[in-house]
């Protein structure tokens, strides 16, 4: 009974997602065209002759009418063809598939840790409301929101790599000459885990902790702030007062309040994921992480037009997919909006 309702809900949500994905694809196409004018100039460079530009146009297909290009872009995209990278000369889809797992691993882990720390700090602050602990959390999270992530990455590199020498330099997922696991997904830590390669796991953990810490230090802050206000709202709610009046233990009341703070936090996770993807662009660059985000940055620097377009499209689609998951998760947590 319930299972069927859930299945129906998922179908409905997927159907709802389709037009948004279509919109995302359309927006990607027109934004990159309108912003760029004629990508052929970008690709060919400022000193290219007319003939070169014409041949680049033919290669990119930008010599044809916009409507025709749009139609072909859509049908290609549906078939999973995002064009060929002008720089690596490989399909953009393949390039992204190789590198996306590394980015997703970093982003997902950062999200998970930020959530855990943010919820803990936020509900701690709510319980110590107005006292020193609360003020420390509030000031700390307020300040962390002002810190640029890429700069924090550099500061951490200076402290932990140059000064203390307990972290690796900006060498990416695998240290030069270090143990590497068999390449399954491209997310090294994950690959090491599923291939049960202990040495590689340890090595990749060593590689990831600094970039991870950079992101977690910053993105714990908004979650802590949100969780704090949500927990305060739920702590001062009638149901907590009634729970107290029924003699529930503080521990139980604490779980009530924390759980009550979850729904708004979960909603926020959808937004945060998309912000983290953006942050990954900078953090990957700082640490030479070699994921999809850094690939996109290089593509932009080299005017690799199809690669940029492909990455923007994939990032948009990923955000939409995350919203879909968050929406379902919300329904699991809060029975009031269920089905």
């Amino acid at each position: 009974m319930r299972a069927r309702q859930w299945a129906w809900l998922i179908v409905k949500r997927v159907l709802f997602m389709a037009p948004i994905l279509f919109g995302v694809a359309t927006a990607t196409f027109f934004l990159t065209r309108l912003a760029g004018g004629d990508p052929a100039y970008l690709v060919a460079g400022s000193f290219a002759t007319e003939e070169v530009i014409a041949s680049v146009r033919a290669q990119l297909g930008t010599d044809r009418p916009l409507g025709e290009q749009y139609g072909e872009f859509l049908s290609d995209t549906i078939r999973g063809d995002l064009g060929t990278s002008l720089f690596t000369d490989r399909p953009v889809t393949t390039d992204l598939a190789d590198r996306l797992p590394a980015t997703l691993q970093l982003v997902t882990l950062a999200l998970a840790f930020s959530l855990v720390f943010g919820l803990a700090l936020g509900s701690y602050a709510a319980h110590r409301r107005g006292r020193a602990g609360d003020r420390a959390v509030r000031f700390g999270s307020f300040s962390a929101l002002s810190v640029p992530d890429f700069w924090l990455g550099l500061v951490l590199l200076f402290v932990f790599f140059f000064k203390l020498d307990i972290a690796p330099g900006p060498t990416g997922q695998i240290a030069a000459g270090g143990p590497a696991p068999q390449d399954v997904t491209g997310a090294v830590l994950f690959d090491a885990m599923i291939t049960l390669n202990g040495a590689a796991f340890k090595a990749s953990l060593h590689q990831i902790w600094l970039p991870l810490m950079t992101m977690v230090l910053i993105f714990t802050a908004p979650i802590a702030r949100l969780a704090r206000s949500a927990a305060i709202e739920s702590l001062t709610s009638d149901s907590i007062l009634f729970g107290r009046a029924c003699g529930l233990s503080n521990r139980k009341l604490w779980t009530y309040a924390t759980r009550g703070a979850l729904p708004p936090v979960v909603t926020f996770v959808g937004i945060l994921f998309s912000v983290l993807l953006g942050s990954a662009v900078l953090v990957e660059t700082v640490f030479s992480w070699g994921g999809a985000a850094q690939y996109a940055v290089n593509a932009i620097r080299q005017s690799d037009f199809p690669a940029v377009q492909g990455f923007v499209l994939v990032a948009g689609a990923l955000s939409v997919a995350i919203f879909f998951v968050v929406d379902l998760l919300y329904r699991v947590i809060d029975p009031r909006v269920r089905l």
């Binding site: 948004i20 934004l31 990508p39 912000v275 940055v297 620097r301 005017s303 037009f305 923007v312 955000s319």
Partner: peptide, 14 residues
């Protein structure tokens, strides 16, 4: 729906 920073980079770059 797009990550803000990525959109901004792509638009300025292109």
């Amino acid at each position: 729906a797009f990550p803000l920073l990525i959109l901004a980079i792509a638009l300025v770059a292109l």
